[in-house]
Design a binder for these strands. Sequence first.
DNA 1: ATACGCCGCTTGCATCGCTG
DNA 2: CAGCGATGCAAGCGGCGTAT
Length: 250
Amino acid sequence: MDFYTWNQKFSNLGSNRNDRSLGNSDGFSRDCGNADGVFTKSSQSLVLNEQKGELVKADGKVIGKKIGLKSDEKAMAALKSHSDAERRRRERINAHLHTFRGLVPCTDKMDKATLLAEVIRHVKQLKTDAKEASIGLLIPEDVDELIIEKVNGGLTFRASICCKRRPELLTDLRRALDALKVNIERAELSALGDHMKIVFYFTRTTTATTDEDLVSFVREALNSVIEKAPFSPEYSPRTTLPNKRRRYSL
DNA sequence: ATACGCCGCTTGCATCGCTG
DNA sequence: CAGCGATGCAAGCGGCGTAT
């Protein structure tokens, strides 16, 4: 196939692009192509070796898999498909960026990088505001937390746990506390998103240990519950992250 | 006029997920 | 398990607008 044929096909394929890309709407840069079947983009030259039926770089390196002469149209269809897919991907990204502009004030004229920085700043501010507003309320935080303190003039202890929710968490807590022989007087529980906050008040059932020892025992027991590997596969952390992100289709 | 930054486009490569 | 199409990501390029 000569350059003209190749170029004509790309001219047809490129008809749906916006005005800004008209400069190279043939699918190649202006300096590309010659009658010998050499297609160049200023960064590299592609050569169709008709004897071998391979698309190779000008320096002889084979590009990808062997391309059969009869599958030229197939290869171009793949390129077109890929090009369209990339366009749709850019449109998705831009649509979400547009949504960001609607969510964060004064971002109409911002470039994309600045917009993203502004969104980050805005989200951080919202989190700070939410945290301040939730003081005194039982709202789970994003981070794991375990606080044990004396209240009620030292007669009662207050334990506050915040961690990722999992089905067996409450059962594990119950078992851990039963083993410690403490008397639970009151418990409060809340969940937000995938986090859970549990606050309970307990008193000692024996005077055999000091307050410090009791707090230490309770802390150790609760820590073991929080750090326990989840049983359910649904809640299992991934030990190895894939190099590539998982695909999500809407 | 020139430099520079932003943006969209194309394309190579890696990876995923399906199929025979 | 190999082959293949679809997809994600990044690099490189050229066009355009703006500052100097």
